[in-house]
Design a binder for these strands. Structure first.
Lengths: 209, 209
DNA sequence: CAGTGTGAAGTTGTTCACAGCA
DNA sequence: TGCTGTGAACAACTTCACACTG
């Protein structure tokens, strides 16, 4: 499989890739120069064939009987995942989770920067959290730049749809939805749901059965 | 399907259920008494048959041509997901994400309470964040209670495995892993990976293709 | 006839089996 | 022999089709 292939990369694969990347960076710190998918699979608790399949979506080729060159694999993965070019986004809702995202240094490391935040709480407007200024949501139209396509949704559930509508009306093309409601958007807008409470449900179920 | 069935509830179903719950609570606030799976599916952008299938894992039965009684469905879902009985957990790593979880009021609403937090940063030991005291990780063995089975992992990636090992050695049965490394644990321990960066990879890929 | 509930078909993702290579 | 890479078998999840019900 190569990059000319038009089929979409499976979402599970995309979600595993950042884990490989983190694993590889740690391995590199520990002095590893070369690593096999067998090794990666073993260390990460993933099926080794799965690792090979996942990596085959990138352009990298492994050396038979040796494995993959760590440095090359890292840079290839970063390019593939677009973690080495900076994407910008807006944050809507500077509550506890929103604030955490503003303070999180990890995001820039993965090629993402929150360039402005929006809230409706008068006490928060004008504040600067982690280098990002907070504006009133009503000022979004005025403040926004057309080249920012990603919006983070961390508002209370009651306002999720409403704020999502504002994003869509103003040209946002991808919404990273941290709320526990499913929002309705046009087909052209991509939504990634990341509700942590959803995972809590899984934990409770597996723990008590 | 009923509760005597031994097959596991599919993870995708478990992850959708909290969304149904949130949707239903909002609908209830808006005065809805009865709702059909067709309606839920339409409003949430989920296939209506999927909604029916998902709900059939609980004990609730819908009325033909009418739908489900909202209040009953809410309480049935809450019971099923164990959101109305309090589970306790420990948090490891009081960084930006860990702190956000400590400050988040939403968790208790979903039946989860962080009863103690652990970190290695001397500046943080002894602090009280959102009602939770922070102890040194080395004191875990001394502080822990045997009935707490859930551990939240929000430490830097370099220490993830090490801290996970401490948890496992001290009787933790489920680890909610927010780091971007896959940790290795015995089969008896359940791990739920919730790395937000993984979702970033999906957003970038879908946005740029 | 609109809605539930379910078995069957289809799709997607994972695991297995093995060919090729150093 | 140990590893990559791939096509085939398998499992999981989703969507479709339809019988049933008030």
């Amino acid at each position: 499989m190569n990059k000319i292939d038009t089929t979409l990369v499976p979402e599970p694969t995309l979600r595993r890739m950042p884990c490989y990347l983190t694993y590889l960076k740690l391995a590199q710190q520990n002095g590893a120069k070369v690593v096999s998918s067998t090794q990666i699979g073993h260390d990460m608790g993933v099926d080794p064939t799965q690792v090979t399949k996942d990596l085959s979506y990138t352009c990298i080729v492994g050396k038979t009987r040796v494995g993959y060159e760590v440095e090359l694999l890292i840079s290839e993965l970063e390019t593939f995942l677009r973690f080495n070019t900076m994407d910008c986004g807006y944050l809507f809702g500077a509550g506890s989770l929103g604030t955490a995202l503003l303070l999180d240094h990890g995001l820039t490391q993965f090629g993402f920067e929150i360039v402005a935040a929006f809230d409706v709480n008068p006490d928060k407007i004008g504040l600067n959290i982690g280098g990002t200024t907070i504006y009133h949501t009503n000022d979004f139209k005025r403040v926004k730049h057309d080249d920012v396509k990603i919006g983070i949704l961390t508002v209370p559930v009651e306002h999720a749809q409403e704020v999502a509508d504002i994003m869509v009306d103003n040209g946002i093309e991808a919404i990273w939805n941290f709320t526990s409601v499913r929002i309705k958007v046009p087909d052209s807008v991509f939504v990634q749901n990341t509700s942590i409470y959803a995972h809590l449900a899984v934990i409770f179920n597996r723990l008590h059965s």
